[in-house]
Structures are given as C-alpha cells and as structure tokens.
C-alpha cells in the first residue's frame, strides 16, 4: 500500500489532509513537528511526504534538506510536497532549493492537494 507521511503542527489541517488522502486509498501517518516528522520518515520510509513549512523544533525546509542529504538513497529521493502559507516567489525558490518536489499554497483547496499528491506518486498508487 502506498504510504504518505503528513507533517503539520496544526492538528485540524493535519487531520483534514490525512482524511482526504486516506479516501484515495493511501495509508497515511501524521506527525506534529519537524523533528518527529524526520524520525518518522526514516523509520516508515513513506512514498511521499506532505510537509508544512512553519513548524516547531525543526521547520519544513530543514526536514526537506535532511531528507535530501540522507545516506539512504531511496529516502533521499522521496517526493516532498510543501503545504505552506509561504508561497511567494522567493519562498518557492528557497523551497525548491531545499529539495521540495512541489508546493501547495495555503489557503489551499483539498482538490488541488489531491491532484498534486496523485501527480507526485507513481502511476496507479491512488485509487478512485
């Protein structure tokens, strides 16, 4: 089963994203801060990470960089989708430079999120 890790310190947003992705037939895990998110990514080895930018302990960019620099080549290649209110031109540059695969700007549409997650995963990963 395709596994997605959602890392967001806002429980309402994290739960909503997890619900919508769960409805696509994906297995979803949720973490509430960057440090826990990075540890979970190393342990669970998800197929995709949906990452908030502004988080306590370790922000989304730091997590993204740490993933890209991981000695495990498979983990270093994991697609990362930044779900963030920081989506101005310079933010996009910084996000992509840190290794983000794609962005979803807050305020966001769950339909757009679903489309971008589907596009970032290998074909056939998503049902329905």
């Amino acid at each position: 089963m395709t596994h997605v890790l959602v890392v967001d310190d806002d429980p309402v947003i994290a739960d909503l994203v997890a619900f919508r992705l769960g409805r696509l037939g994906l297995e979803v895990s949720v973490e509430r801060d960057g440090e826990a998110g990075l540890a979970a990514a190393r342990q669970l080895r998800p197929d995709l990470v949906v990452l908030d930018w502004m988080m306590p302990r370790m922000n989304g960019l730091e997590v993204c960089r740490a993933l890209r620099e991981d000695i495990d080549a498979d983990l270093a290649r994991t697609p990362v989708l930044l779900l963030t209110a920081k989506a101005q031109e310079p933010d996009l540059e910084r996000g992509f430079a840190a290794g983000a695969t794609d962005f979803v700007a807050k305020p966001f549409s769950t339909r757009e999120l679903v489309s971008r997650v589907t596009a970032a995963l290998p074909p056939g990963s998503v049902s329905g």
Binding site: D10, V12, I13, K106, F108, S109, T110, R111, E112
Partner: peptide
C-alpha cells in the same frame, strides 16, 4: 472548528 479552518481553505472547500 469551522471558523479556524475557513481561512486556511479556498475554492469549493
């Protein structure tokens, strides 16, 4: 909850 979520969503949501 809805009022908390509202500014974070757009479009049909």
């Amino acid at each position: 909850i809805v009022l908390e979520l509202l500014p974070q969503l757009r479009g049909s949501d």
